[in-house]
Design a protein around this nucleic acid. Structure first.
Length: 786
DNA sequence: ACTCCTCGAGTTCC
DNA sequence: CTCGAGGAGT
């Protein structure tokens, strides 16, 4: 090595040392300033060191450390945010409002743990945005929004600009992976200052700190985020590997502080219900003086082992509760009460209000839900009402201020008895809360809603087909039903758009820009063309069958596999599928039996709409096709399952039943036989029975042969009981079936395993009595090799 | 028969 | 987000 090279190497080594020292030093000051609130050096000195580091890194780009504070100034804009799947889902909390709610929470916790008194970790509930920070070996690698709890967006570049978030955790022996959960928010003072700047620059002001923080976090250009002064507080944990989980939640927060993470100071460990209420009262008093907005406090069972024991109900933990402050209320006046017509014809009264600022937004409309609700609250046009944002989102009319009712008093509100859109009668079924327009698809409002539903993101996902265009297409008589969408031409769309623009008083520019309109129409046609190949369940959901949402549509698609079969299935067959009972089954069968719907579906298929992912019926359908079950599922009066069994064992088949008129010979009591004869006297009933029998045979022929013999769990039977900590019943069942195992409802000698969660009942006791192996969720996952 | 839970439907504002 | 209704478990 030459002298020069040696010299250069020494210089590089010195530069590297200096960069490392500067990084550590600057991070120390950042932490002292932003987390501990105790500045250690003057700002000017900080800036000097910062610039030195910046210059050093500019000269030697390879020296930049992953936790260098120069990473925080923001990076060039992103095209979009990447999706991030949360390893541990980010769940929401149950809410409590009254002392009674808190009492119930504490009682349930004590009952669940079989304990006399429970210690709780209490903290404030920030009004911000939940974020997951991922650290690998102590280095910040990724930040993601909550999203729907299972999948969020990667906002790492924006989060990096938050100075109170350490890019490297403090201390030794750091976990391999640590996911810190917490809240990103904006201080009230920073919000006010920012709006001041926005105003001065003639730009849009934000309505509240939460929206401002959300806006800053969603910036594709993180250099803008860097100017917004966001803050972060840690309060929870996601994935953790390579380190032990602390025994208490309070200890976790202490650990976070040692790691250099910001944790809110207002926290305490209290005992029992009285401790919770004390904490709530104390925080309520200091709330106005806090630098940030909070909307309540959060209680968590302090012991982590107890938290695990309590587990989860659906999407919320049983061991935690958010105790919300009362929602802000405001007074305003009812200008009018109008009604809306929904997709199912539901007539919903809506109060048009004099705009009022409440709970951080301006409210102009509030739903009155239904006739009974209006009557109960006695809301009348001209009334002064108290409004609030229920659950912080949906405006609600709390009550009428009767003292302020004008004189003479306006008339009590009466729901119209004809549909305001189509004039059909409004009917209200016995025992139902909603009134409905009887016009069905002849009602323009329902047609529009049906099309809007069909085109929606979770159904056929036709991008660019918004409300405005649906209105225009229906009003221009171009589209009467969903099938018409597939017959639209470029000319149709262009004509419709120019009419619509004219009607809406569009500016001359838009009218002149024929090219823009053509592009829009091309895109829409393209989107419609793409939607010709929807997954089967999406098509089913999109049809808008009453009681068939995302989940039921999936059940139908999974079990029966082919659209043709689903269309023809009688209610009795649908009824044997999981989560489908009499009402839902009838609703589906009635929909497909309706002449108009038949035509609409045929038109869709003729237009080239072809459901994707069709497959043979699910193998497990074989058991469901048991004749006894099917016969009982028809719901013939007095024909219970044992009686059905009796009939079939006596040698009667479904086909014979359709022809048979005398049932006394099968040894049934006279009343049952009589009811049967009466039922079988009806021609439609017999026809239904014939088609049920035929379809059953067809399905059996299509079933895959003995698929259950495959997979590691083949031949083993599982029973699920209680609530598992993270998996839903269905998810666990699906995993077992995917591995070739069978899930059954009741425990017997033949049961291989019982999977028990929290609050397991008699099944667990029976399993213990029979000596069946009992698994918890972790053991199940281990067994399945997950 | 009763209770708990999930799903569907409707709604507001940015 | 909330409500009601349907479904399933006890």
């Amino acid at each position: 090595m030459t002298q020069d090279a040696k010299h250069a190497e020494r210089a590089d080594a010195a530069a590297a040392d200096r960069a490392a020292w500067l990084t550590a030093e600057l991070n120390r000051h950042l932490h002292a300033y932003h987390v501990l609130d105790a500045p250690t050096i003057p700002d000017a000195e900080y800036d000097r060191l910062f610039i030195e580091l910046q210059e050093l890194e500019a000269a030697h780009p390879d020296l930049a450390l992953p936790d260098s504070p120069t990473q925080r100034v923001g990076a060039a804009p992103l095209g979009q945010f990447d999706a991030v799947t949360h390893v541990v889902p980010m769940l929401s909390l149950n809410n409590g409002f009254s002392d009674e709610d808190i009492d119930n929470f504490d009682r349930r916790v004590r009952e669940g743990l079989d304990a006399g008194q429970v210690d709780y970790a209490c903290e404030v509930k920030f009004d911000g945005l939940a974020i997951n920070l991922r650290y690998e070996n102590g280095v910040f690698v990724q930040a993601a929004t909550r999203g729907d709890g299972y999948t969020g967006e990667d906002v790492s570049a924006n989060i990096r600009t938050i100075k109170s978030i350490p890019l490297r955790l403090h201390g030794e022996a750091l976990p391999d992976v640590l996911e810190v959960r917490g809240e990103v928010l904006m201080f009230k003072a920073d919000f006010a200052a920012m709006n001041e700047r926005q105003r001065a620059a003639g730009q849009k002001e934000f309505v509240n700190p939460r929206n401002a923080a959300a806006g800053a976090l969603r910036q594709l250009d993180s250099r803008i985020t860097a100017q917004r002064n966001l803050r972060f507080f840690a309060y929870g944990i996601g994935e953790l590997t390579g380190a032990a989980m602390p025994d208490q939640h309070s200890a976790l927060l202490d650990w976070y502080e040692q790691l250099g993470l910001p944790v809110a100071k207002q926290r305490a460990v209290v005992t029992g219900k009285d401790g919770l209420l004390d904490f709530y009262a104390r925080i309520g008093k200091t709330r106005p003086a806090m630098p940030y907005e909070i909307d309540g406090v959060v209680y968590k069972v302090d012991s982590v082992a107890d938290q695990r024991a309590l587990g989860f109900v659906s999407r919320a933990p049983r061991f935690a509760l958010a105790h919300k402050f009362p929602a802000e209320e405001a007074l305003t006046t009812v200008q009018a009460i109008e009604v809306q017509v929904g997709r199912t014809g539901a007539i919903t009264p809506v109060a048009r209000l004099v705009p009022v600022f409440v709970g951080g937004v301006t409210v102009t409309n509030a739903t009155l839900h239904n006739e009974d609700e209006v009557r109960r609250k006695d809301v009348r046009v001209g009334d002064t009402v108290i409004v609030r944002r229920a659950g912080d989102v949906i405006p609600e009319v709390l009550a009428v201020v009767l003292d302020k009712r004008p004189t003479p008093a306006p008339a009590a509100y009466v729901l119209p008895d004809t549909c305001p859109v189509c004039g059909s009668h409004v009917v209200r079924e016995e025992g139902e809360a909603v009134a409905r327009c009887s016009g069905g698809l002849t009602c323009a409002a329902q047609r529009k809603e049906a099309i809007r539903h069909f085109a929606g993101r979770r159904m056929m996902d036709i991008e660019g087909l918004g409300d405005r265009y649906i209105d225009s297409l229906v009003e221009a008589n171009l589209v009467h039903g969903v099938a018409d969408l597939y017959r639209l031409t470029l000319d149709d769309l262009l004509k419709m758009k120019s009419d619509a623009d004219e009607r809406d008083g569009a500016t001359p520019e838009t009218v002149r820009q024929g090219k823009v309109a053509t592009k829009w129409a091309d895109n829409l046609l393209e989107a419609i063309a793409i939607s010709r190949k929807p997954p089967l369940e999406r098509l089913l959901f999109g049809l808008g069958i009453r009681h068939v949402g995302e989940s039921t549509a999936k059940t139908l698609a999974d079990w029966l596999g082919r659209f043709e079969l689903i269309r023809r299935a009688p209610a009795a067959l649908l009824r044997v599928l999981p989560d489908i009972g009499g009402t839902v089954a009838e609703s589906i069968a009635d929909f497909f039996a309706e002449e108009k719907n038949q035509q609409a579906i045929d038109a869709l298929l003729a237009a080239g709409v072809a459901p994707q992912g069709e497959h043979p019926p699910k193998a497990q359908l074989r058991e469901k096709l048991d004749e006894v079950q099917l016969l009982a599922a028809i719901g013939i009066p007095k024909l219970t399952e044992p009686r059905a069994k009796q009939l079939l064992q006596a040698g009667l088949t479904l086909e014979q039943m359709a022809l048979q008129k005398i049932f006394t010979v099968y040894g049934l009591p006279a009343t049952v036989a009589g009811a049967l004869e009466e039922w079988a006297a009806s021609e439609p009933n017999r026809t239904m029975l014939m088609s049920l029998s035929a379809l059953r045979a067809e399905l059996l022929a299509q079933l895959p042969e003995a698929a259950a013999d495959e997979g590691p769990m083949a031949g083993r039977t599982f029973v699920l009981t209680g609530t598992l900590p993270t998996l839903s019943r269905d998810a666990a069942g699906a995993m077992i079936e995917a591995a070739g195992g069978k899930v059954s409802g009741s425990v017997s000698k033949k049961t291989s395993y019982v999977v028990a969660g929290a609050e397991a009942g008699s099944k667990l006791a029976k399993a213990e009595a029979l000596g069946v192996t009992i698994l918890d969720e972790a053991a199940l996952l281990a067994l399945l090799g997950k």
